[in-house]
């Protein structure tokens, strides 16, 4: 069974979790043998452009040791054989269309999403 993980939310709990929870869940399921394809849409298109780790949080004398490193998590997913696709229109409407996506991420336009949906067994919208 091939599942398309549609990730729309981003930077939602990355401060507390030190990762994106759905990217993390995808890595975990992939480790359990899941056949996944990830589609980055809406806010999550920023993940296709990740350049560095998130800035560390600090509150009083507490300082974060390991802020989220989305770029590494995306690269690990790609390295594990998960295809990752990003919606070009969502990048463009945010003024990000000219930026370079991480190597290995495919770009599609909105009109191509239906074809991608039809190519998998299930679509899980997160």
């Amino acid at each position: 069974m091939k599942v398309l993980q549609v990730i729309e939310q981003a930077f939602r709990a990355t401060g507390e979790e030190q990762d994106d929870t759905i990217v993390w869940l995808s890595r975990s399921m992939r480790g359990a043998g899941a056949d996944l394809h990830i589609l980055l849409t809406s806010h999550a298109v920023s993940y296709a452009l990740a350049k560095a780790g998130s800035p560390a949080l600090s509150f009083g004398d507490w300082r974060q040791a390991h802020p989220a490193d989305i770029r590494n998590d995306i690269r690990e997913l790609l390295a594990s054989g998960v295809e990752i696709t990003v919606v070009q229109d969502d990048l463009e409407e945010r003024g990000l269309g000219a930026k370079q996506c991480l190597q290995g991420i495919r770009q599609i336009c909105r009109d191509e999403i239906a074809t991608l949906y039809d190519s998998v067994d299930q679509v899980w919208q997160w």
Binding site: M1, Q9, R12, L25, M29, A32, G33, A34
Partner: peptide
């Protein structure tokens, strides 16, 4: 359990619905 259990559940089920949270 863990996300592996979600995958096991989904693999064995007739269908799956994910209800994601929203900001």
């Amino acid at each position: 359990g863990s996300p592996a259990d979600l995958w096991k559940f989904a693999s064995a089920a007739d269908n799956t619905l994910v209800i994601g949270t929203r900001d």
